[in-house]
Amino acid sequence: MGSGGAEPGTVRPGGRTARVRAAVLRAAGDTLAERGVAHLDLADIARRADVGKTTVYRRWGTVTSLVADLLMDMAEQSLPRTETGSLLGDLKANARLVQRTLADPRQGPLFKAMIAAATCEAKTAEALHHFYDIRVKEWAPCVQQAIDRGEVPEGTDTHEVIRAVSAPLYYRLLTTGDHLDEAAADRAAEAAAAAARAGAYLRNKGLG
């Protein structure tokens, strides 16, 4: 992964460019988790990352672009789905991953800050939507496998089932100060699995 004998100025994955991006995104994430978007300042991020201010301004330009890149990096780093052989097992694995992320002392505040920023900044909202779209698409095949096994009715909206798992956990994060534990995660998974089996997520349900 080292830059080895690369010519000065060449861009290589794993070289200086990648190290600079990693350092800047880590500094941005730390600042977001600690103090929120209002305190994000490109010069301060450059100082925290020990990177030249000019480099940061040239590469990202605005705080919004930096937050969007941080979300893209988080999507790329996210863990792959778990497949247990049953819908409930898979959804519990998904719920516990969400729960661990949101209960984490750094990740929880970081996501709260991202959501807050997205309410008033269109580019951040777009980046946040893209992040969740990637995560939902990663886990949707678990529901398709449940359809193929006959656990869930044909025509079930696989994406909606995955969203239903996370929804109660995010709601609790944003509306209460309660700690999110594994029991909350399992309950969210059980509710989504039961609803899916009952046909609650059939496409076009109730229309026409």
Rank of each mutant, 00 (worst) to 15 (best):
M1S: 07
G2Y: 05
G2W: 14
G2F: 02
S3D: 10
G4T: 09
G5D: 03
G5A: 14
E7V: 06
P8A: 12
P8G: 12
G9Y: 09
V11G: 00
R12F: 06
P13C: 13
G14N: 03
G15S: 05
T17Q: 15
R19A: 10
R19L: 15
A22W: 05
V24L: 01
D30E: 15
T31A: 09
L32F: 12
L32S: 00
L32T: 02
A33Y: 04
G36Q: 00
V37R: 13
H39N: 08
A43N: 12
I45L: 00
A46H: 06
R47W: 00
A49N: 03
K53N: 10
R58Y: 07
R59T: 10
R59F: 04
W60S: 00
T62E: 04
T64A: 15
L66C: 02
L70Y: 09
L71N: 02
M72V: 08
M74V: 06
M74N: 07
E76F: 09
E76H: 06
E76L: 10
Q77V: 10
Q77K: 11
L79T: 06
L79R: 13
L79C: 09
P80R: 13
R81I: 00
E83N: 04
E83V: 08
T84G: 02
T84K: 12
G85M: 13
S86Q: 09
L87F: 02
G89W: 01
K92W: 10
A93V: 03
L97Y: 04
L97I: 09
L97C: 07
Q99P: 05
R100I: 00
L102H: 06
L102C: 10
D104C: 11
Q107W: 01
G108L: 08
L110D: 02
L110E: 00
L110Y: 04
F111H: 09
F111Q: 08
K112P: 01
K112Q: 08
K112S: 11
M114N: 01
M114D: 01
A116Y: 05
A116S: 06
A118E: 00
T119G: 09
T119C: 04
T119H: 05
E121S: 02
E121C: 14
K123M: 04
T124F: 02
A125G: 02
H129R: 12
Y132C: 03
D133S: 11
W139N: 06
A140C: 07
P141V: 08
P141Q: 13
C142A: 14
V143P: 05
A146Q: 00
I147N: 08
R149T: 10
R149C: 09
G150C: 09
V152Q: 00
T156Y: 13
D157V: 14
H159Y: 15
V161N: 03
S166K: 05
A167N: 10
L169N: 03
Y171S: 08
T175S: 15
G177Y: 15
D178E: 15
D178N: 06
D178C: 04
D181K: 11
A184P: 01
A185R: 11
A188F: 03
E190Y: 07
E190N: 05
E190W: 02
A194L: 10
A195T: 05
A196C: 03
R197G: 01
A198L: 05
A200R: 14
A200S: 15
Y201I: 04
Y201G: 08
L202T: 04
R203G: 09
R203V: 14
G206L: 04
L207K: 12
G208H: 12
